[in-house]
Design a protein around this nucleic acid. Structure first.
Length: 346
DNA sequence: AACTCGGGGCC
DNA sequence: GGCCCAGAGTT
């Protein structure tokens, strides 16, 4: 029996029952694939359920406000996925009359959809034999064939895409693609793969050479930089605070936050005091400054460590331009801010 | 080709 | 503390 058939047989015996596996509706499949980019199934699952409940069709998603979409995405990370998802929903409704594109070439034109996602949708929804290459596929094929080409290079992608394309069962591409991914996720895991019960343990090159833990090969990514964030939490006499929307191209684009003062090293009381005297909303006003957490909260991202302090500014005046503290839970915020809001309990 | 974009789980 | 996760967009 060939590898493709063996993978499919393994899958049919071992697959998880996941909500997006009971449909070929391209809107649902698209949604699930975007959510699952760089995200484990267990983490993405509640977000998928939330989205299909709040936006049952692409029309519902298209007519929502971006803030609403970001709010539902809050905590999942990589927020450009949410912004691109929303933009593509609008595109499908206004330009394509609500009709989801049906070929790989058309699907990949959607914002936020690359080779992997277009292949997944084209195969699962439209029975097109386009092989997916994700982290699971890299791992399974690099081990099975003993391929040490670095996966995060152009050559690596081409090598594994070509191999997966040769292996795909053209009569059941949807099942094959999901089978190889499930195999990588559940059996051929990064750590402690279950080689004892693997259907390929008689031919796996990496197992025979005892180099399972060396594959796949991935070039090191760049170093982590440290930053010092100081969030200014204003509390006015009329129960208001200041929040602003993040602009520009950095992290958390279009999410909300308290006014941020970034310093080159850990800030102390006097530094922050003189900084906030310059804030327009506080100019000439009387306030008391205290720190919420003396010890910085270290928020770890893939390539930044954010040493964060929350500073409380008590104002004995009203703040006409502020927002009610009772309403801040409706704004999409980074989880770093969300955790603070929960703990501070306004 | 290198860099950027989150948050959580696992070891 | 390092690596990984149903990757994509920008420079």
């Amino acid at each position: 029996m060939n590898i493709s058939k063996q993978l499919i047989n393994w899958y049919l015996d071992n697959k998880r029952d996941l909500p997006w596996r009971n449909t070929q509706n391209p809107y649902f499949i698209w949604l699930s694939e975007i959510i699952l980019q760089q995200t484990q199934v267990a983490q993405g699952l509640p977000y998928y359920n939330s989205f299909i409940t709040n936006f049952p069709t692409v029309f519902d998603l298209a007519k929502a406000e971006e803030q609403e979409v970001l709010k539902l995405w809050q905590g999942l990370g990589y927020y450009s996925r949410a912004r691109n998802l929303h933009a593509s929903a609008k595109y499908i409704v206004t330009e394509l009359d609500g009709q989801f594109p049906e070929t790989f070439e058309e699907i990949i034109k959607l914002k936020g959809v690359g080779d992997y996602t277009a292949s997944a949708i084209a195969s699962i929804c439209f029975n097109q034999a386009t092989a997916v290459v994700d982290g699971n596929v890299y791992r399974a094929l690099s081990r099975l064939y003993g391929i040490d080409t670095p996966i995060n290079t152009t050559q690596g992608f081409k090598t594994f895409k070509t191999l997966a394309q040769q292996l795909i069962d053209t009569k059941q591409p949807a099942t094959f693609n999901q089978a190889i991914m499930e195999f990588g996720a559940r059996l051929c895991k990064p750590k402690n793969p279950d080689c004892n019960s693997c259907p390929f343990n008689n031919k796996c090159v990496a197992l025979q050479k005892n180099i399972i833990s060396d594959l796949p090969v991935k070039l090191k990514n760049t170093k982590v930089t440290k930053k010092h964030f100081n969030y200014i939490v204003v509390l006015s006499s009329d129960q208001k605070t200041i929040i602003e929307q993040r602009q520009g191209n950095g992290i958390w684009q279009n999410l909300y936050q308290f006014p941020l003062i970034e310093t080159s090293k850990e800030a102390n009381h006097s530094t922050i005091y003189s900084e906030i005297e310059e804030l327009n909303v506080l100019k000439g006003k009387i306030f008391q400054l205290s720190v919420f957490n003396q010890k910085p909260i270290i928020h770890k991202l893939s390539h930044q460590h954010l040493y964060t302090k929350f500073w409380i500014v008590n104002l004995e005046q009203e703040l006409p331009e502020g927002v009610l503290t009772s309403s801040i839970q409706s704004y999409p915020v980074p989880i770093l801010i969300g955790n603070f809001i929960e703990k501070f309990n306004f």
